[in-house]
């Protein structure tokens, strides 16, 4: 199968998934106990007004028609109005999205910088003390409740030591830098606003470490097992036999080949960061999509919850598609065979 065919098939799956997600969110919105028309009109509204509201919202139409209208609105980027903030949901999401991506990227960066070397060391010294230690770290990583780790970080680094801020994205006195990308660190650096840059980085450290630590385990495990597999290959033995140094073999041959299958896992993990982000943002009052959805949940703001679900799911599927494409480009075997 050619690359173009694979891409075509994956795009079809993408459409199916987005369609499925909207179907689920639509079904969920209809499962909610209570009458949305009455909720919008207010508790004391007369039956006449509620009826009018029902008509305005299209709730008197057949379910299939309602669904078609819903999908049409989503396609135009119209997710309705948030009950809590009274703003269009889409503008809320646009505002909070960059903060989540910035946090997820920082976390991923930490997980890769620490996790890849740890996985390599673990694999080359298999069953020795350092291997047990690194495997323990990765098991603890995947077993730690994100919200709890975040609280401990705040307790130690903010409460006890007082060296790092424990909430928000930037110091209130300094204020956010001029918006270019929406990433405070990058925007501050681009505009040469160094006090803002310093503050943005400081605010990013604790949430980034918290979210990153959870993924450290995934990265370390993946690299370790990919390295072990590669190290038993014939070409590694040949390289060893031809007198290459251990270092040359590990970094020149083994790691390069172990990284290819790892890209998929690490990419998928990036999609999963969305999950950790919801909890991490809540703990650190990080103004991203995760904190936004949790606040929406506590006020039963369904337009916002459902919009988040659709946007987050679509982003997740797109990331996975992107990762698979990179994988195919990097691995000629997959490219040829499909």
């Amino acid at each position: 199968m050619s690359l173009a065919n694979i891409i075509r098939r994956r795009l079809l799956l993408l459409i199916l998934v987005v369609f499925g997600v909207t179907l689920v969110t639509f079904a969920i919105s209809h499962m909610i106990p209570g009458d949305p028309a009455r909720m919008m009109a207010g508790e004391r509204a007369s039956d006449e007004i509620v009826e009018k509201m029902r008509e305005n919202l299209g709730l008197n139409k057949p379910v299939a028609v309602q669904y078609a209208i819903y999908v049409g609105q989503i396609a135009r980027g119209d997710f309705g109005t948030s009950i809590r903030t009274q703003r269009p949901v889409i503008s809320d999401i646009k505002k909070f999205f960059p903060a989540t991506i910035e946090l997820a990227l920082a976390a991923m960066l930490f997980a890769i910088i620490v996790g890849v070397p740890l996985g390599v060391i673990s694999a080359v010294s298999k069953d020795r003390l350092i291997d047990h230690l690194s495997r323990s770290i990765s098991v603890v990583g995947i077993s730690t409740p994100a919200f709890w780790l975040g609280l401990l970080m705040i307790l130690v680094f903010y409460g006890q030591l007082g060296i790092l801020p424990g909430s928000g994205r930037i110091d209130g006195v300094i204020g956010p830098p001029t918006t270019i990308t929406g990433f405070y660190t990058i925007d501050a650096a681009l505009t040469g606003n160094w006090p803002a840059f310093k503050s943005a980085v400081q605010h990013l450290i604790l949430p980034g470490l918290t979210l990153g630590f959870l993924h450290l385990g995934v990265v370390t495990r993946q690299i370790r097992s990919a390295m072990l597999e590669v190290m038993s290959e014939d070409y590694v033995r040949t390289a060893r036999a031809s007198g290459l140094s251990r270092r040359q073999i590990i970094y020149g041959h083994a790691l390069r080949n172990a990284l290819i299958p790892s890209i998929t896992m690490i990419g998928l993990a990036f999609g999963d960061l969305l999950y950790g982000a919801v909890l991490t943002e809540t703990v650190f009052a990080w103004p991203g999509m995760g904190a936004y959805v949790v606040q929406s949940i506590s006020s039963l703001d369904f337009p916002a919850i459902m919009a988040f679900t659709v946007v987050a799911s679509t982003a997740y599927v797109l990331i996975n598609l992107f990762v698979d494409l990179i994988y195919m480009v990097l691995d000629p075997q997959i490219r040829e065979v499909g």
């Binding site: 799956l13 199916l16 998934v17 499925g20 997600v21 689920v24 969110t25 969920i28 919105s29 499962m31 909610i32 106990p33 999609g271 999963d272 969305l274 999950y275 919801v278 959805v293 949940i297 039963l300 369904f302 919850i305 459902m306 988040f308 679900t309 987050a312 799911s313 997740y316 599927v317 996975n320």
Partner: peptide, 20 residues
Amino acid sequence: DVLLSFPSFVMAMALAAALG
């Protein structure tokens, strides 16, 4: 395949929110 492509925590959260 379609279900597996959903981000599971986000879906669980949406479902749990709807169920109460």
